Simulated assay, not measured.
Amino acid sequence: MSIPRSRRVRAGGLAPDVARTVLSDFGLILALIFGGCCSNAWALELTTKLLPASGTLMTLVQFGATALVALVGELEWHTTRSISYPMLKRPGVPLRRWVVQVVLYFATSLLNNTAFAYDIPMSVHIVFRSGGMVVNMLLGYVINRKRYSVLQVLSVALVTAGVVVATLSAAHPTQTTSGSTEQYATGVLLLSLALLSSGFMGIFQEHTYAKYGREHWHEALFYSHLFALPLFLLHARGLATQVHEANATPPQWVGIGRLGVHVPSYYIVLALNVLTQLLCVNGVNRLTSRVSSLSVSLVLVVRKAASLVISVLVLNGQAGNVALWSGAAAVMIGTVGYTYGGLQRAPKIRSKEA
């Protein structure tokens, strides 16, 4: 039986349409991640150079702005007696699960931003945070009873060695002030705690998506930032000090011609930081909702490699040192090996379950 021509056209055009949709979607995601996140690393370095001990203030503004922007997508309009009013959508995931994730996300963000006050260079910060794979493997083995291939274990060992080498490359800051080594060690400890918190958050998020579906990424974005805002009351005194220091930064003119106002320079770079952070977070959450955590890790490590090059070569005009680049290369190679090992192992696991 012959198929009508109109039906053949529709069937033949379906695959290209789907392909174009997928490619355009992932094109947007990659643009948000590589454009937004790399720009955010640049803006973050400018912000921390101007006022290193402003981690709490920076985190508060980032969380507040993200919650406000995400609110738009979580509202729906209701009508009662011809009166329309907005209300929050019914959550697709129980709010108690978001509360747990909020605490972990808040701790991770605050620890990472606070570490800049302890002489941690941006280059080391980027490489160190790429070591989250080590924590993910350990937690996956202990909590989820996951098993890993020999290639994955060797790759994680390579990543660990790379993080250690890159961290030690800046273990002796150029300042000769007393306590600089202790400050650096404190910063490394904060980054280590942030990795641990981020690992727990990743596992908890995977369990949430596995149970309720990955389409709730926007809901996660909104509630994980909204519910964290009251936690900043625990740092009220430190926030007041940081606001005072931010207000004291050199003023810059913002405006067109004679129309404008002088603004403390810190708030200008902070606004740029927040804007790029919104783009970055949006891209990462979109990616997380569409692919596995393994693929997310690979994309983010490639992004961090780009941020590292921008930080060392472009922003600081330096060539880096052998230890830093060797450590960074080990992290990148180890990540690729880990990802490839996971892809090779997946079919074996599925065939056993079948």
Rank of each mutant, 00 (worst) to 15 (best):
S39W: 03
T249H: 04
Y267M: 11
P91F: 01
M332E: 15
Y118N: 06
R129S: 08
Y105N: 15
S297C: 05
S197K: 04
P86R: 10
T48G: 07
L110T: 04
V188D: 00
G132E: 05
N144R: 15
A228P: 01
L343G: 07
S297Q: 09
T335K: 00
H78Y: 09
C37A: 06
L259N: 06
F222M: 05
T56R: 05
A31R: 09
A329D: 00
T335C: 08
M201K: 13
L44N: 09
S24E: 12
L308W: 02
L315R: 05
S178D: 13
L57S: 04
G199S: 00
A328D: 02
S54E: 02
R10G: 11
A220E: 13
I256G: 09
A246D: 02
V156Y: 03
H78R: 15
G238P: 03
G13F: 13
G140H: 07
M201V: 03
V243P: 01
R10W: 15
G260C: 10
L343P: 04
K304N: 14
L154S: 13
T160S: 15
P4F: 05
Y184I: 04
A330E: 09
G92S: 09
T339D: 02
L308M: 08
V18H: 12
G342R: 01
V165G: 02
N112M: 10
T79S: 14
M122H: 04
M137L: 14
T160Q: 11
L270Q: 09
G283T: 01
L324E: 01
L44E: 07
A157P: 05
L28W: 03
G36T: 04
N40G: 09
Q277Y: 11
I310M: 11
F222H: 06
A41W: 03
